[in-house]
Design a protein around this nucleic acid. Structure first.
Lengths: 136, 136
DNA sequence: AGAAACTATATCACAAACTTATATAAGTCA
DNA sequence: TGACTTATATAAGTTTGTGATATAGTTTCT
């Protein structure tokens, strides 16, 4: 059911210079504000050293900044820079464009049903992944 | 809109041993039957040598088989083995399980709207990606 | 307070998966 | 037939990720 939709959505993303883990990490930071590397690791399917190096690369590219956590000397707080936000926005627009082009081709009835389901889809997307998603 | 849904769907996929390009390639083969490497390249965001090695790895793992194309001596036809189909099915079930768990949590009204939109979503997913998806 | 145990991040060496450039073999066409 | 073109393979180098482990800071327990 939603299977094909997923791979379709993936392909609807115009080719970008950052991989999917990087993009969803950046998007997560954009939504939640500053987070520690450990928190980012928990949300992505990558190991801690992998996230450390990803954050370092994104910092070099100017998308994020790392600052010391005043509350915990071991931790590093990562947050999105204005350039990072602009980049996210740009990606968003490019995808929206592609998707809109296809949505426009739907029959009015289908379009209507899709609009009606937006709320449900948003609700779904807002749910954290719980079940067997993260194998212990 | 459909932005977050995408990353949600990605995370709803239980961790697997094959990356997303491999899975969608395998799924494509499952749907379309035997295809040449060049066709697979066109559908995935990967270069030809990358696809050649991916196919080689999947063949080693027993998910696909390569055969000479009787109609074109240069080409190789790739198709899914029974084990490959079983693997696809298994992934499908695992994902369906995770998704179903979440869908069940929706309010009846939202669930209804979602069901109503399935047809539209299927239609969308069946459309080839056209616009600026594949930069020349 | 002080030592032991735990936690957050970093570093290192190695492996996997790509990429670009190029080779090889097979088909196409004037 | 000979000059192109096309389909896949190979090779070398790069990027991105992993596992093991180090380092420094925080807790906990007595």
């Amino acid at each position: 059911m939603l299977e094909r939709l997923h791979s379709w959505l993936r392909q609807a993303t115009p080719a970008v210079e950052w991989n999917s883990v990087a993009l969803s990490t950046l998007a997560l930071l954009g939504r939640r504000g500053r987070l520690r590397i450990t928190d980012l690791v928990a949300a992505a399917r990558i190991t801690q050293p992998g996230m450390t190096s990803l954050v370092a690369r994104m910092a070099t590219a100017g998308l994020v900044v790392k600052e010391a956590d005043p509350a915990d000397g071991r931790a590093t707080l990562v947050s999105v820079t204005p350039a990072g936000h602009a980049y996210l926005e740009q990606i968003h627009e490019r995808r929206a464009e592609v998707i809109a082009g296809h949505v426009r081709g739907l029959s009015p009835a289908r379009l209507q049903s899709l609009i009606g389901a937006l709320d449900a889809l948003e609700t779904l997307a807002a749910q954290p992944i719980t079940p067997g998603a993260e194998p212990r």
